[in-house]
Amino acid sequence: MKITTEDIPKGKLIMISGEIDMHTSPALRDVLMKLTKKKVTPIIVDLLEVSYMDSSAIATFVEALKNMMSYKGSLRLCNLSQRVSEIFTFAKLNKIFEIYKTREDALKNC
């Protein structure tokens, strides 16, 4: 898994590539925790190049989301693969996370 971050006019853009699983999610957690500690909002996570994501990855996003709730921050996920999108939809996670089809959509109002 590779993580790159980019400043956007307001907030931060995180681009992830590869697999997010129990072995790699701690690195993602470090990045997200640092940002939520600084109360960064919005945090946009681009999952275009993520080939696989397990429940530990979702837990990492849940933790970040919970942290962000304390400062009314916005965590936006975009470019979810079909499989990940299905998981989010059937588990009703699409009602919890702000999910956008493309990065451009997620970047609106930033």
């Binding site: 849940v62 989301l65 919970k66 059937f90 588990a91 009703k92 996670l93 009602k95 919890i96």
Partner: peptide
């Protein structure tokens, strides 16, 4: 609560995936 749907197998041979998920997984909101 956000769990994969369960499968109903009737004695008649009718099989149905019961996918009425009540809500998200436990522990999120």
């Amino acid at each position: 609560a956000g769990h994969p749907p369960f499968v109903l197998v009737r004695t008649t041979g009718d099989v149905k995936v019961i996918d009425d998920i009540s809500g998200p997984p436990l522990g999120i909101i």
